[in-house]
Amino acid sequence: MGAQAAGGEGSGVRTLERGLAVLAALAGRRAATLTQLARDVNLSASTVSRLLDTLCRQGFAEDVDGTYRVGPRAAQVGQAYDAHDALLAAARPVMRAVVDDLNESVNLAALRGPEAAYVAQVEGRQLVRMFTQLGAAAPLHASGVGKVLMAWRDDADVAVLLGKGPYPAFTPHSLTTWPAYRDELARVRAQGHALDDQERELGVRCVAAPIRGADRSVVAALSVSAPTSRLTESEVPRFVARITAATGEISRALGWTP
């Protein structure tokens, strides 16, 4: 059984590779016939025809009277990449400015399935500082960025992504029930920022705020985190003011208007 599964997986990977090769060849030509694409990818016309049928059904290619071109779903993928690139370009200089002001680590996170994924970081210069590996994920219920990414979504969407609980308790401060989390999201919406008060890790606080796109939707979250010995309760308002000013600047660069 294991050998069959491995063989099926390998066949699926080869099919995916061939399909992507056809799509790349199609993108290079803008429009092409079946014969041209088969020659470009060095596959038989029958194989390329089957791959094109799948690409067309999924919206990644279009057949216009026997001439193929890139479909709308491929364009959506490209737009998503452009949007990510634009987000990083707008955020990085602002993140560096926040670090200059607060001397604490600043993180940029975006939604990735049922988690918040860190896509950029600028580290503070303190001897003891918060470090996050790029690509690492934070739980939506126990992180400032997770709360921000969820707060402006409908309860039904949040429930689909997170479930109705109970949620894992990382510390005694973690929110573990749906009613408590729902109330917390309402608080985040009302105040415009989120606080992770030792909910993921004891001794660490984090404040986060939303970054919005031109359509006013929340596209990412920006946060600053530090040990509780430096980010004390009395310091929270100063950190909130700086991070919300930063997210406003990034959002405006992405086309958002208040």
Rank of each mutant, 00 (worst) to 15 (best):
M1W: 12
G2D: 14
A5I: 11
G7H: 07
G7D: 08
E9Q: 07
E9M: 05
E9K: 03
V13N: 09
L20Y: 04
L20V: 10
A24Y: 01
A25C: 08
A25T: 09
A27T: 10
R29V: 00
A32Y: 00
T33K: 03
T35C: 03
A38I: 06
N42V: 00
N42L: 01
N42W: 00
L43R: 03
V48M: 05
R50Q: 14
D53C: 04
T54Y: 01
T54I: 05
T54F: 01
C56M: 07
Q58F: 10
F60Y: 15
F60G: 07
E62D: 13
V64D: 13
V70H: 02
A74E: 04
A74I: 00
A75S: 14
Q79A: 14
A80L: 13
A80C: 08
A83T: 10
L87V: 06
A89F: 07
A90T: 06
A90N: 03
V94C: 09
M95W: 11
R96E: 15
R96P: 08
D101M: 13
S105F: 08
A109V: 11
A110M: 14
L111D: 05
R112M: 09
R112A: 15
G113N: 12
G113Q: 08
P114I: 01
R125H: 15
R125T: 13
L127N: 08
L127G: 04
L127W: 08
V128Q: 12
Q133P: 06
L134N: 07
G135T: 12
A138E: 08
P139M: 04
L140Q: 05
V145Y: 01
V148P: 02
L149F: 02
W152V: 01
D155A: 14
V158G: 04
L162Q: 08
K164C: 11
G165R: 07
P166I: 05
Y167F: 15
Y167G: 13
H173I: 04
T176D: 07
T177H: 03
P179R: 00
A180E: 14
R182P: 02
R187P: 11
G192Y: 00
G192H: 03
L195P: 11
L202A: 11
G203E: 12
C206N: 02
A208S: 11
A208N: 04
A209H: 05
I211Y: 06
R212C: 13
G213H: 05
A214C: 02
S223L: 00
S229K: 15
R230K: 12
L231P: 10
T232M: 00
S234G: 12
E235P: 07
R238N: 12
F239S: 12
A241H: 04
T244W: 03
E249V: 12
E249K: 09
E249C: 08
E249W: 00
L254F: 12
L254D: 12
W256H: 15
P258R: 14
